[in-house]
Computed example of a mutant assay.
Amino acid sequence: MSAVALRRHPERDEAADLVDVISRWLRGRGHEVVDDVAGAELVVSVGGDGTMLRAVDEAARHGVPVLGVNVGQLGYLTEVDPAQWQVALERWEAGGAAVVERMLLAVRVECAAGLAIAPDGDDAPEPLPDGSYLALNEVVLEKTPTGRMVRIGVVLDGEPFTTYAADGMIVGTPTGSTAYALSARGPIVDPTHRALVLAPVAPHSLFDRALVLTPTTQVRLEVEGDRPATVSIDGRSAGQIDVGDAIVATAAGQPARLVTFGDRNFHGILKAKFGLSDR
């Protein structure tokens, strides 16, 4: 018997219905359905990539693997479609699942006088005990919703690199290279790599290229000029920071652990999601 935690999209009826079905099936097989991820051996995420990101953030803190069931639109991160959940869990029961590790970002927010920002809303990311945050896709420092472009100073491993006047800056992972960083003309990186992707958003500069950096690079983004900026982590607002404040990102010490069955590959997913033909 195993303990399994279920996480679902909060607003989709089909996700709620499917979670009820999966819960009954698990209990009927002798498994325990638990709320506390810390006591689970598996987390099943039922929703889209947003639901998966939140499940991974919670599960990675305890080293628990996550299986994603796609009830969303794109489903880049989720492993199986709704019709396949039972086959997937039967294979997991029989030991036929593999667990792949994906690099996470560790993100720290540095505000004046050492004060942490106050997260926005109930869906704000949860800090770790040391005050840092985890991100599977990216952290973004960008202009406020009503503001104009911001000035962001980039410091790499303690050395000033340059200052961008832009709508924002993204520090992403290889997994996140097909998320927000892709829309900012960043490179597509195989998610099994370990690297940092630094991509400006709509920069007012001749130098507008994304950078691929080693995972141990410490990337510091400082708010300069006279306008504040907002911070979002995996699509969740973490609040606003002021001029002189900064975020610092590098590879996290712990990985995300995702359940896979070895019958999908990154190139095939790219072809399917972007409608690419063989010729």
Rank of each mutant, 00 (worst) to 15 (best):
A5N: 07
A5P: 02
A5I: 03
L6W: 01
L6G: 01
H9A: 05
A15V: 04
G28F: 08
D35T: 14
E41G: 05
S45K: 07
V46G: 00
M52W: 11
L53G: 08
V56W: 11
A59M: 07
G63P: 01
V64M: 05
P65F: 01
L67I: 09
V71S: 10
G72F: 05
V80C: 02
A83T: 13
A83S: 10
Q86S: 11
V87F: 06
A98M: 13
V99P: 04
M103H: 05
L104A: 14
A106V: 13
A106N: 14
V107S: 06
V107F: 09
V109W: 09
C111M: 14
A113C: 12
A113T: 12
I117W: 14
I117A: 15
E126C: 06
E142K: 01
V154S: 00
T162Q: 11
Y164F: 04
G168W: 06
T178W: 07
Y180V: 02
A181G: 05
S183I: 11
P187R: 06
T192K: 15
H204Y: 13
S205F: 13
L211D: 07
V212T: 00
L213S: 03
P215Q: 04
T216N: 14
Q218N: 11
V219N: 01
E224S: 13
P228G: 02
A229V: 07
G235D: 05
S237W: 12
A238C: 15
G239S: 06
I241V: 13
D245L: 13
V248K: 14
V248T: 11
R257F: 13
L258T: 00
F261N: 01
R264A: 02
N265P: 04
F274E: 07
F274H: 09
D278Q: 15
